[in-house]
Design a protein around this nucleic acid. Structure first.
Lengths: 323, 323
DNA sequence: CGTCTTCTATAACCTGTTGGAATGGATGTG
DNA sequence: CACATCCATTCCAACAGGTTATAGAAGACG
C-alpha cells in the first residue's frame, strides 16, 4: 500500500544501471542495503520487479511498467515539495536566496538593500551553499533564487540571467615558479595539478578545470575540495593550482597564495537563477530586477531552457527606476 | 527529500478531519503516533503545516498548498501500483478474481470453465475476500475483476455489470419466535438486534441493515462480524438476526439457523466489477462476457460512474458465442 | 584447470525510529 | 469546580535499516 519515495528512487537507479552494485555506489549506500530495499519494494507490491542473474538485474514486465511511471511520480512529488516550501516562505514574507561563496560580490549588499526598499516588510535570507551543490539549493527547492557561477549542472531546468562577466585568473602557491610572472598563458598550466571541485558537480567542475580549453590535454587533479577554506588551504599547501574569478584576488587574498591573470582562457560569468515556476511570482521577479539594476553587464542576457541546447534569448536592459 | 506515502495519507486525514484525535481513530492508530507522524512530515519539509490549538489543527498556507496536491499524488501512486501488479499478472497469464463469499453462486464454476475455454493457457485465481473489503481487492488493485454484492462503497469508481437479482431473506436463530412464520414482513424486524458488517464498509453495511427501508426507525446492532463463519455463529448464538440473500439458505445452511423470506424489502443484486483502466483489456473483458453469458438476468445493466449519481447505462445482452 | 573477477544473497550486529499506553497541560463548558 | 476535549510528552518494547564481512555462482583468463 504505502512506500517510501526513497524506495522508488532506489528502484529507478537500479533499473537504469541494471546492476545493484553500480546503483549502490551511485546512491552512496552499500550493496546489501540496496538488495534489501529492492526486495522490500517487491514484497510490498507483491510482484517481482527484476530477474536476477550474475550479469545484473533485468526488469520484468511489471518492472518496466513501474519504471515507466515512477520518474514522473517522483518529479511531481518534488514539485509539490518545492511549492509547499515556497508557500511557507511567501506567508512569512521571506525571500530565501542561495549563493555560492564565489558568486557574492560587491554588489550583493546593494541588491538586498534595493529589494528591501521595493518590498517593505519582506526579509531576505541569504544562505551560502557548499560547492557540492552548485545550484545553491535551487534544485532542491530550498531557496527561491540564487546567485551562481555559470555554467552549472541543472541549468537547463532553470531561468538564468547573466549579471557580470569577469576574467578568470589562476591561484598559485606564492612559491610557485609561475607566480613571478605577470600574465600566464593558460597553455602553461596544462601540466600543473589542479585543485578541483567534487566529481558530482559535473559541468561546473569541468568549467573550472577548463577541460574544454586544453585541446584534449588530460587534467591532473592534485586535490578535491568542497569549500572555499579547504580550497585555499589546498593551494597554499602546494597540492595544486586553480582557476578562479579575478575578484577572488580581493575576496580570498591569503598569505601564501598569489593570483595572476591568465590569458587564452574564457571568462567566468555570474548569474541570478530562479525556477520556471516562479516566472510569475512578483517577489522573485522583483529580486531579479534588483539584481539586473545592479549588474555591470551592459547587455543583459537571459538564458532560457531550449529544446535542443542552450540558445540564449537576449533582451534589452530594463530602465533603472532608481530614485 | 523523501517521504513515506503513509505520512502523506496521515496528513490528508488530519487536514480533512481538522483534528488529530479524530484522524487517529479513522486511521486506526493512536493519537500520539499521529502527532509524531505529522511532526515528522513537517520536519522533513522544513515547514509548519498546521497551527495547533485546543480546537484542533488548522492548515497553514503551506499546509493548504500541500493538501491541494497530495490527494492527486496518492491517487497516481495507487494507479501505478495497480498497473504494475496488473502487468505482472498479464505476464504470468493469470487472471485474479476476487469474490465475496455471498456473491459466489452455482454459476461460478461454469464461468471459470468457459473462461478457460476462451483463453487457453490462462489460469483463473479466485480469492475470497473478507467483508471488511466489499470490493474484494479491486479497490487496492489486488484483483483484476470481482464478483460482488451491490451496492458497495467505491462502486462509483468502477465498472459494474449486474448478473443476478434475488430476494433478501432473513437469517434467524431457529429458536426465535419469528422462525415459525413462513414469510416475515420487514417491519416486524425493525426492533430486532442485527448482526452487522464492520462500520468501515459504509454503504454496504447499510444495505444489509436496510437502513433506508426503515422509515427512519433506528437500527439495533447485536454484533459485528467480518466473515461468514463468525456471522453464522453470531446468529446461531442469538446475538441478532440478519438479512441475507435467498441463496444463503442453500450455501449457508447450518443447524440452529433458520432462513425465512422477507416481504417489503428490496432485493439483492450480484454484479461483476472491473476497474475502468481495464475497459480495453481483452482478457478482463472476456471474463466479463463469460459472466454475462452465465447470468440469469434477462436484461443486462451496466452501471457506469456518472457525474451526479448512479445513472445506469443499459445495453442489450450480447450474443452467446458458446460453441 | 585453478584463480580472478564480478555479480547478488546472507549473516551478524548496531543504532535510530516508530508505535502504544499512560500521563500531563491548557482551555473551554455545564 | 469538576469535567470533557484537545494536543504534547515520556517511557518502553519492537522493528527497520544501515554497515561490514562473507558466501555462492558463473564467466574470463593465463
Amino acid at each position: 500500500m504505502d512506500v517510501d519515495t526513497r524506495l522508488l528512487r532506489s528502484f529507478v537507479a537500479v533499473a537504469q544501471e541494471g546492476s545493484l552494485t553500480r546503483a549502490a555506489e551511485r546512491l552512496f549506500v552499500s550493496q546489501p542495503a540496496l538488495t534489501k530495499q529492492i526486495r522490500q519494494l517487491e514484497n510490498r507490491l507483491g510482484v517481482p520487479l527484476f530477474i536476477r542473474s550474475r550479469t545484473g538485474m533485468a526488469l520484468t514486465a511489471a518492472g518496466r511498467t513501474l519504471a515507466a511511471r515512477t520518474p514522473g511520480l517522483l518529479a511531481e512529488w518534488d514539485t509539490t515539495r518545492r511549492e509547499t516550501r515556497s508557500a511557507a516562505r511567501r506567508a512569512e514574507r521571506v525571500l530565501r536566496v542561495g549563493f555560492l561563496a564565489s558568486a557574492a560580490n560587491e554588489a550583493t549588499p546593494q541588491i538586498v538593500a534595493e529589494f528591501a526598499r521595493r518590498r517593505p516588510g519582506w526579509r531576505v535570507d541569504m544562505r551560502q551553499a557548499a560547492w557540492s551543490d552548485p545550484t545553491a539549493g535551487l534544485a532542491t527547492g530550498d531557496v527561491d533564487a540564487a546567485l551562481l557561477r555559470l555554467p552549472f549542472p541543472g541549468q537547463e531546468r532553470l531561468r538564468v540571467a547573466v549579471l557580470l562577466t569577469e576574467p578568470r585568473w589562476v591561484a598559485l602557491p606564492s612559491a610557485h615558479p609561475l607566480a613571478a610572472r605577470d600574465v600566464i598563458p593558460f597553455r602553461e598550466l596544462w601540466d600543473e595539478p589542479f585543485v578541483a571541485a567534487p566529481a558530482e558537480t559535473g559541468r561546473w567542475r569541468e568549467h573550472w578545470l577548463a577541460t574544454d580549453e586544453r585541446d584534449g590535454h588530460p587534467v591532473r587533479i592534485g586535490a578535491v575540495t568542497d569549500q572555499p577554506d579547504d580550497w585555499l588551504s589546498a593551494i597554499a599547501n602546494g597540492y595544486g593550482v586553480a582557476l578562479a574569478p579575478a575578484s577572488s584576488a580581493r575576496f580570498y587574498a591569503r598569505p601564501g597564495i598569489t593570483y595572476r591573470p591568465v590569458s587564452a582562457v574564457s571568462p567566468s560569468r555570474i548569474g541570478v537563477a530562479w525556477p520556471p515556476s516562479d516566472d510569475a511570482n512578483p517577489v522573485v521577479q522583483d529580486f531579479v530586477s534588483c539584481c539586473l539594476d545592479n549588474s555591470s553587464e551592459s547587455d543583459i542576457a537571459t538564458e532560457h531552457a531550449a529544446p535542443s541546447n542552450d540558445a540564449e534569448v537576449r533582451r534589452g536592459r530594463p530602465e533603472k527606476p532608481r530614485r
